[in-house]
């Protein structure tokens, strides 16, 4: 496969403020990589350095084999964080124009624009001025403008912000289509749920530094899974003696006479083994529940920062 993007010890300063510090990661060709972090983590700065919009102060970047995004401009697609388009242009013209800047002919750009708009269900609005479109529609047009030239590498900065859940799903489908077509996708977000559903791999960024790089599964595995158990005569010390248990925490009693515990399992410990041992030792268990860690949990554990939850996305 090979790496489409390599960052090595990249750093960026604005005056005294260190926006990005010693950042290294790789994105393999054809994968969807989530670039995660809270607002102000340095995501946009990093993306701008990858594109060659701003210079890096330290380190090295290699994108599609070039050391600067500017050298492979026509093979990249980019959707900036805050968006807008020429208000008086029609979607077809706008998409064809940005396609033309990336080397397409105007006629080819128009043809592809119509196809892209049709797939997005925007055929009817294809020739209306952009200011007549809703925000969600305009965002789809903008995404179409970013990918009309069928780029090998697509960079999307917070593509989900401002979209309603239906449009968010549409966008997820579109990103999957891009990857299926062979493109490499790097998208930044501070909403973990999208990354969880979409990404092959994620890079977590906090305060300008990398906190984690790997698959979603690996990220989750960094957080202990928890097992909740309830029973009339359960005992914390007995539970802690079970194999694979690292911590036992008493929970409030769900009803009088029933004791509840939250049991953290060691990484790699099989839940089934723990349960088998518990039943084998004759514990009287009235209810149990295995809770898988979410990417959100992993993020908090890896960065020590309370990330914004998926609720924001639904707003």
């Amino acid at each position: 496969m090979g790496a489409a993007l390599i960052l090595e010890h990249v750093g960026k300063r604005y005056g005294a403020f260190q926006a990005v510090k010693d950042l290294s990661f790789e994105v393999q060709k054809g994968e969807i990589c989530g670039f995660l972090g809270p607002n102000g983590a340095g995501k946009t700065s990093t993306i701008r350095m990858i594109l060659g919009l701003t210079n890096l102060d330290e380190g090295r970047i290699s994108i599609l084999g070039a050391r600067d995004g500017r050298r492979v401009r026509d093979r990249l697609g980019f959707l900036p964080e805050e968006r807008g388009l020429y208000k008086k242009m029609t979607p077809v013209d706008a998409i064809a124009y940005f396609g033309a800047l990336k080397g397409l002919s105007m006629a080819e750009g128009r043809k592809r624009a119509r196809g892209l708009l049709e797939r997005q269900g925007l055929s009817e609005s294809a020739n209306k001025p952009l200011k007549a479109l809703s925000k969600g529609m305009a965002q789809k047009v903008q995404l179409a403008a970013a990918v009309v030239h069928e780029p090998e590498f697509v960079i999307l900065d917070e593509p989900f912000s401002g979209l309603d859940p239906v449009n968010q799903q549409g966008l997820e489908a579109l990103i999957r289509d891009l990857a299926r077509g062979g493109a490499t996708v790097l998208f930044s977000t501070h909403v973990m749920q999208h990354a969880e559903r979409l990404c092959d791999r994620v890079v977590l960024l906090a305060k300008g530094q990398k906190a984690f790089e790997g698959t979603v599964r690996e990220a989750r595995a960094s957080v202990p899974r928890t097992l909740e158990m309830e029973g009339p005569a359960l005992d914390a010390a007995a539970l802690a003696a079970l194999p694979g248990v690292i911590e036992v925490e008493a929970s409030p009693e769900p009803e009088p006479g029933v004791r509840a515990f939250r049991i953290s399992l060691a990484p790699g410990a099989a839940t089934a083994e723990v349960l088998k041992a518990a039943f084998g030792r004759g514990f009287e268990i009235s209810r149990f529940d295995v809770r898988e860690a979410s990417l959100h949990d992993a993020f908090i554990r890896l960065t020590g920062i309370e990330a914004e939850t998926g609720q924001e996305a639904a707003r």
Binding site: R73, L76, L85, L101, K102, A145
Partner: peptide
Amino acid sequence: MEEKANRVLEILLSSAS
């Protein structure tokens, strides 16, 4: 100013010098 306000300038600069 219009392009700066609606961030078209950023897309332009990622497409041209």
